[in-house]
């Protein structure tokens, strides 16, 4: 188990290194680089060169990547060229808001997808399954921004039930404005629900065909008892892994939803930084989001590994000796 965790950890770290390189080298050549922004639009070429030198931009890219990565590891993500604030400060003020948003959405999806997936998977091929599958296919097919825009148009513009934007004073916690959380969270839930339901259903269907479930049915188990005590424990490991992939995907979805609702999170800040060509900000926030995605996937893998009973020792006697 420890070895399993270590290999996964090393893999995740390697992926992180790869992603950070992709991120750095794709954005370090932003046309409006820091020198151009700091020097102003009408600076002469020599002035720009001077600033480049001061900012260390004349060094080779690889050397700058190593410096940047080293700084990032110590918590220094550089300074935003547009706003002038340290990137780490912006990240700290936005990160919690995004965690609340994505966390709420993940919780909602986990409950809904497990219910729908169990219902559909245990009745594969029947009416309930077909209806749920049609819903799933539709949700998967539609891009998140369409679903979220649809919500805004229907519930905010036409219905007037919830605010169409989620701007609240800096320093406030999103919990103080629950009405502003409803639409963004619903948008994210709709965006991830299709994929998650499909994954849970697939896990349930493959479990439901197993000899253990057939035997449970032959033993007279049915309904909620069958689903809760037999199917769910067996489907838990693949289901958790699926939910982790979905949760990581929600970080992408949060980009769209936060932007649409002007929600003060990491995603909307990143989208804004892309528009303003703020290289340091894009790199810092991108690194944070990619790191979070990999962390979620890693934790999902670990949980799935822990849930797998077969990873326990082959002899029950020795394994239980130390237990109270």
């Amino acid at each position: 188990m420890i070895r399993f965790g270590l290999t996964r950890g090393v893999t995740a770290a390697a992926m992180m290194l790869l992603l950070s390189a992709v991120l750095f080298f794709s954005t370090e050549a932003l046309p409006g680089d820091a020198a151009g922004v700091v020097a102003g639009a009408d600076a002469t070429e020599s002035e720009r060169a001077e600033i480049r030198k001061r900012l260390g931009l004349d060094e080779p890219a690889v050397a700058r990547y190593v410096t940047w990565l080293g700084d990032a590891l110590t918590g220094d993500l550089g300074r935003s060229s547009a706003a002038g604030r340290p990137v780490a400060e912006v990240l700290a003020s936005r990160f919690g808001n995004s965690v609340v948003l994505v966390g709420l959405a993940v919780a909602g999806i986990a409950v809904l997808a497990t219910t729908f997936g169990l219902v559909a998977g245990l009745r594969a091929g029947r009416l309930g399954d077909r209806l749920l599958s049609s819903m799933t296919v539709t949700l998967i097919a539609l891009p998140e921004f369409l679903l979220a825009t649809g919500l805004v148009v229907a519930l905010a513009h036409q219905g007037g039930m919830f605010p169409a934007v989620s701007i609240f004073p800096p320093g406030d916690s999103p919990w103080q404005h629950p009405d502003m959380l409803v639409l963004p969270v619903t948008g994210l839930v709709l965006g991830g629900l299709g994929v998650a339901t499909r994954l849970v259903r697939a896990a349930v269907v493959s479990v439901a065909e197993s000899p253990a479930i057939e035997q449970a049915r032959l033993d007279g188990e049915s309904g909620v008892r069958l689903a809760w005590s037999y199917v769910l424990p067996a489907a838990a490991a693949p289901g958790i892994q699926g939910l982790a992939v979905m949760a990581a995907g929600l970080l992408g979805g949060s980009l769209v939803v936060e932007t649409l609702f002007n929600y003060p999170g990491v995603g909307s800040e990143l989208a804004r930084a892309v528009t303003y060509r703020d290289a340091a900000m894009v790199q810092g926030l991108g690194l944070a989001l990619a790191g979070s995605a990999l962390l979620i996937l890693f934790v999902g893998d670990l949980l799935a590994g822990l849930l797998n009973v077969r990873s326990r020792p082959a002899s029950w006697r020795r394994a239980e000796r130390g237990a109270p």
Partner: peptide, 18 residues
């Protein structure tokens, strides 16, 4: 790589050439 959110990667790669 397939598990990292595609939208995030798209944004980060395309952000370099606005």
């Amino acid at each position: 790589l397939a598990a990292v959110p595609p939208l995030l990667i798209t944004l980060l790669i395309a952000a370099g050439r606005p």
